[in-house]
Design a protein around this nucleic acid. Structure first.
Length: 808
RNA sequence: GCCCGGGUGGCGGAAUUGGUAGACGCGACGGACUUAAAAUCCGUUAUUCGAAAGGAUGUGGGGGUUCGAGUCCCCCCCCGGGCACCA
């Protein structure tokens, strides 16, 4: 029979609300557990990814509550961002109205999933009471030298008409719209995340439980390289420039040097180079190329000979100086020593321009030569004077570095790939940068009393070269907070990743009108015990938030090193082979399942379908299975309610043991985030219950209570509505308020097991025997039962309560 | 190219420390109930030989360690994800 999921679910959601089950007193300082799901962008409707995220989060919330923790599980909205603005351009509806309607719709949907959230603490990034504090924190960073404005070559999306962070450029295109991204020189705001490169990297080792792939993605992104930096002198001039290399051991193999086309020293070179006209032409050509074109590794390398020379510092040899766009200005020093014999890119370039290629490393057996390709593996040095025969890489690098240091030419150097975080956006629907351009005082932050710098009402959201805010006279015209003269505001807004870098702090003190948050509360609640969200945020959001916490710590606003202790990344849910998206028309709408199958069945299915960290294909039939399971357990409980009560029933011992095993197994799986197998445990215990109920006509009161309490408790984190209702069939107690069941360690093993009899490692027979049967007893059983002659076997291996293996 | 994951029935996936491979669910097939269908219930379901009893094969491929390998070691192939002219 189908149980009435609709009425049951709304009934219990109401009860949880009325009993304030989700409300958390953050002033309490004992047994706190901060369980956080990544706050969503209000896209309009909940999708399966959200359902997966919030179901996992709720399982943890309810499980931890039952274990006595004071759980904080808040929810909010990452509500600034492009889609609302693009919609406004199209339809004329104000982004605020558009966004808030969507928030209210999604909030309803989230509530119907039955997850517990402390809505008292809800925040929304676009709310002026929130972005006031985003601006406050920006000013704090600015005052502490962690936010600065600088000219920089930036990524400009030709379609969104805005600057993008490096992280938002995917294969030369805009992350959002795929349009071509151009390089432009603009005056932009940056956060000094690069100052924390080393700490962000180290922190990954000290952090709690994070998925290894997320750690490795962050490591890759930070990109630490150890090597040497030394100066090259341009022959017959006093021009010097530094180069960076990770392979100082190959220094004798340098046969030319290369500068990036944007390198500062080129201005000087043009003055003295015999081929300055060609250089100018080459640089012009390079500028016209898109970032993607330049980065494409398939194209042939290009460059230009400056006609100038530099000296190899280790042997004084004169080599040519080139300019080439395969050298990147914003990595290392923007200049390299080229060792074509042992570097693929230099090799390729040398082939194109017919430059000498010198082998300075050879494999141990001296059989490798570099006629066809460079040799980049380990070996020993040749053609390197007194360094010959040293091992390449480490040993030789150390020695050559020592020489460079002694001579005062160079030094050890560690560089990072991570660059400063560009946060300016030339868009409307974001947090205004609270800075004023004063012709007398320079860049001046808005005074705290004047915060928030409100987003003005404007007629036209379209941006051209300037930000939309530049069109609002009321907005841009202001006076300098320092000297009072008339001046103009900054017109850019912040990257929305700034908003999401600190929202988890505001949750703890969301009503605070004097400060973004109270330091003491943050110190007692952070790091967040469990953070749960999609793997798509593995780099950006998680790295930025980590930076933010470290920056706020150094400013003195918190005493915490890392924001997130444990991180869980759920896999994506695909449908029809690709990621669900409205544009592809392959969206499975969770809302319809609330009506047809109920929230509990949907929750169970989404947990059961695969290990939660795996990506998975949506299968419509699967949810039928979890709904069937709920119907069956419902039927069992109804059947049990009409069963005769007796003092004692012999069959009880077994069902009690099976339930005890289930408590053990579900608890273990829950602790390890193995929700799929935890759900299968629940299904198994229901099969046992079905068997038990069909084989007995009577039950003892104690057994019945045991069954009800434990099955309802185990089911509760996963399918909380039906678990609460089933429990109420028998008692007026609310299952939500009872503690997590404890298993009896002495009652986990079954009294018998199936002994596997192997002969020479192959399974030949099985036999049900008593648990604890000794080797001798097992041998005797095999002699009698399977007519084995023990004399025929050299060796008998017996594994207690598992197998016996006769070797002969 | 580099760095992470991963490869088990028709499908999603289970398998403490090496110890009965395929739990649980979906699907399929057969049966019961029904005028019929749906729902529900019962049974079968890795492949293969066999009437059966029983045997052989089987966790991407090839080697190895072991009484015993999905699990450990070496080599190779394939798939997913991330990074990528990063010196």
């Amino acid at each position: 029979m189908n149980y009435e999921h609709k009425s049951i679910e709304s009934k219990w959601q109401k009860i949880w609300q009325e009993t304030s089950l989700a409300d958390c007193d953050v002033s309490q300082t004992r047994d706190n557990f901060y369980n956080l799901c990544m706050y969503p962008y209000p896209s309009g409707d909940l999708h399966m990814g959200h359902i997966r995220n919030y179901t996992i989060g709720d399982v943890i919330t309810r499980y931890k509550q039952k274990n006595g923790f004071n759980v904080l599980s808040p929810m909010g909205w990452d509500s600034f961002g492009l889609p609302a603005e693009n919609a406004a351009i199209k339809t004329g509806i104000h982004p605020k109205k558009f966004t808030e309607e969507r928030i209210s719709n999604m909030r309803d949907q989230i509530q119907r999933l039955g997850s517990l959230y402390d809505w008292e603490k809800e925040v929304a990034a676009h709310d002026k009471d929130y972005y006031k504090w985003t601006q406050f924190l920006f000013i704090k960073l600015f005052e502490n030298g962690l936010a600065y404005k600088d000219d920089a070559p930036v990524n400009w999306c030709t379609s969104c008409k805005t600057v993008l962070a490096n992280e938002q450029v995917i294969e030369g295109g805009c992350e959002r719209c795929d349009a071509t991204v151009e390089q432009k020189n603009l005056n932009q705001w940056f956060f000094k995340i690069s100052e924390y490169s080393e700490e962000l990297l180290k922190g990954l080792d000290e952090i709690g439980d994070w998925p290894s792939n997320v750690k490795s993605m962050q490591e890759n992104w930070i990109g630490k390289s150890k090597g040497a930096e030394f100066n090259l002198n341009i022959l017959d001039t006093d021009l010097n420039f530094p180069v960076f290399t990770t392979r100082p051991d190959t220094l004798f193999g340098m046969t030319f040097a290369v500068l990036a086309p944007e390198h500062n020293i080129i201005n000087e070179i043009i003055k003295i180079s015999p081929s300055s006209e060609e250089i100018k032409k080459y640089i012009k050509k390079t500028n016209a190329k898109s970032e993607f074109e330049r980065m494409s590794i398939t194209k042939q390398k290009t460059g230009i000979d400056t006609g100038l020379y530099v000296l190899n510092p280790i042997n004084g040899k004169k080599v040519s100086l080139f300019i080439a766009d395969y050298v990147l200005v914003n990595y290392g020093t923007g200049a390299i020593m080229a060792v074509p014999g042992h570097d693929e890119r230099d090799y390729e370039f040398a082939k194109v321009y017919n430059l000498p290629i010198l082998q300075v490393i050879i494999d141990e057996s001296h059989s490798i030569n570099i006629d066809q390709e460079p040799f980049t593996e380990r070996g020993v040095l040749i053609n390197s004077e007194e360094y010959n025969n040293l091992n390449s890489h480490d040993e030789a690098s150390d020695e050559i570095l020592k020489y460079l240091k002694e001579k005062g030419i160079g030094e050890e150097k560690t560089i990072f790939r991570l660059r400063d975080w560009l946060i300016s956006r030339q868009r409307y629907w974001g947090c205004p940068i609270p800075v004023i351009n004063c012709s007398a005082c320079g860049l001046v932050p808005e005074s705290f009393d004047n915060l928030p710098v409100l987003l003005p009402e404007i007629d036209d959201y379209k941006n051209s070269e300037d930000s939309p805010l530049a069109n609002s006279k009321e907005f841009i015209n202001t006076s300098c907070p320092k000297c009072g003269i008339q001046c103009l505001r900054e017109t850019d807004t912040m990257d929305t990743f700034v908003d999401s870098s600190w929202y988890f702090l505001r949750f703890l003190d969301s009503k605070n009108n004097d400060m973004p948050f109270n330091k003491e509360i943050i110190n007692s609640w952070l790091p967040i015990n469990q953070y749960i969200g999609g793997v798509e945020h593995a780099i950006l959001h998680l790295l930025y938030s980590r930076f933010f916490i470290k920056a706020l710590r150094d400013i003195g606003m918190v005493d915490v090193n890392e924001p997130f202790h444990n991180l869980f990344s759920q896999g994506m849910i695909n449908f029809g082979g690709s990621k669900m998206s409205k544009s592809k028309g392959n969206v499975v709408d969770p809302e319809s399942y609330f009506a047809t199958h109920g929230a509990d069945a949907l929750r169970l299915y989404i947990l059961f379908m695969a290990p939660p960290s795996d990506g998975v294909e949506w299968n419509d039939g699967g949810i039928e299975g979890t709904k069937r399971f709920l119907n069956k357990i419902w039927d069992n409980f109804e059947k049990m309610s009409s069963i005769e009560i007796v003092k004692h029933n012999e069959l009880d011992a077994e069902i009690i043991r099976k339930i005890n095993q289930a408590i053990f197994s579900v608890t273990n799986h829950l602790d390890k985030f193995e929700f799929n197998t935890a759900v299968s445990d629940l299904m198994k215990i229901n099969i046992e219950l079905t068997k038990y109920l069909s084989s007995t006509q009577a039950i003892s009161k104690r057994t019945k209570d045991y069954i009800v309490f434990n099955i309802c408790s185990l089911l509760y984190p996963f399918a909380p509505h039906i678990a609460s209702e089933l429990n109420n069939m028998y008692t007026s107690q609310n299952i939500a308020e009872l503690s997590w069941p404890i298993f009896d360690e002495t009652n986990l093993t079954d009294p018998t097991y199936e002994l596997v009899v192997q002969i020479n490692g192959k399974k030949r027979h099985t036999k049900i025997v008593n648990t604890g049967t000794s080797k001798e007893e097992a041998e005797k059983i095999c002699e009698i039962e399977f007519k084995l002659d023990l004399k025929n076997y050299k060796k008998i291996i017996f594994v207690q309560d598992k197998i016996i293996n006769f070797i002969g």
